[in-house]
Design a binder for these strands. Structure first.
Lengths: 157, 157
DNA sequence: ACTATTTCGGCAACCGGGTTGACGATCGAC
DNA sequence: GTCGATCGTCAACCCGGTTGCCGAAATAGT
């Protein structure tokens, strides 16, 4: 019973469309909540720095990018007031990145919006279908990808 | 029964991961089949030009990017031998883009690989689950997005 | 028929997020 | 103490986009 199978090329389109939709919607709502300047890339970085903070090199490793790229991102993050850069007392070479209260606010707001969006999907799809969707996607995205989205922009090698 | 719902932030990660996986795998196999230099962006453009060809401006409109961007892409596509640029006999301003045999080969090969990949997903998920997944994704990506993936790279506004 | 407006394509400059290469400064091991 | 690894940064570049501007050609208006 192969009646009406979709074309293979539709799958990536659907995945990309759904992804874009979530991210766009997230940032639309974040902008409304007082974070209009938090670009997706910054959000990921902020998340990666986390409550405990880390150094620039750490951040680079966590995001799977070079230290140079991490330096650039943190510069912007700092300029926007989302993180503080303080010298590491234990290592004179290192710079400690810590999330500011403003940054923390953005993180909690993000988490809230993500749950909000998932709740909306749940309403449209039903709890069972949504969970099935997540499980199926997980099944097809082996652990292999540590930070699957970070190099999305540059994933055109 | 809300036992063990996933976090809201996992959904976009799963979507992005799955998308990346498909595209990466597509281009890995394309490279094996003699198209190592066909970047994802070029593939989309090639697809957009299509069997009938079009002008540079057309291409820009189809991809949802500026004519300048379309010009740049076609220049690379032409340099790689995937398209021909010929003057339009009916309009001295226009340039006609046509897919070369090499380009046509890449397109058919892409289509084949997409079906191959979908078949693999089908094997892992089962026909029913796969179709459910596609339908659910479609449900959440309203028509609103004409070319959902093209400005993925630049979707950081 | 002759303007006036639109459209076509390309040039130049820039942006955002990446890369590599080189570098001085510091740390840690021996 | 010296030497190799690591820390963060500067500079230059890549890639896919953008806007602004332009001349040349097509089309509309009268």
């Amino acid at each position: 019973m192969t009646a009406m199978d979709r074309y293979g090329y539709e799958l990536p389109l659907l995945l990309a469309g759904a992804f874009r939709r979530i991210i766009d919607e997230l940032h639309r709502r974040l902008a409304e909540q007082g974070h209009p300047d938090l670009r997706p890339a910054y959000g990921f970085a902020l998340q990666a720095i986390g409550a405990d903070g880390c150094t620039v090199s750490d951040l680079g490793r966590r995001l799977g990018v070079s230290k140079q790229a991490a330096t650039k991102t943190t510069a912007k993050l700092a300029a926007l007031g989302y993180v503080d850069r303080t010298p590491d007392p234990a290592d004179a070479r290192a710079v400690l990145l810590t999330v500011t209260p403003h940054g923390r606010a953005a993180l909690t707001e993000s988490a809230r919006i993500f749950e909000e969006l998932r709740a909306e999907w749940k309403k449209t799809l039903g709890a069972t279908r949504l969970r099935a969707l997540e499980d199926d996607l997980a099944k097809l995205t082996p652990s292999e990808t540590p930070t699957p989205l970070i190099d999305l922009p540059g994933w055109f090698h």
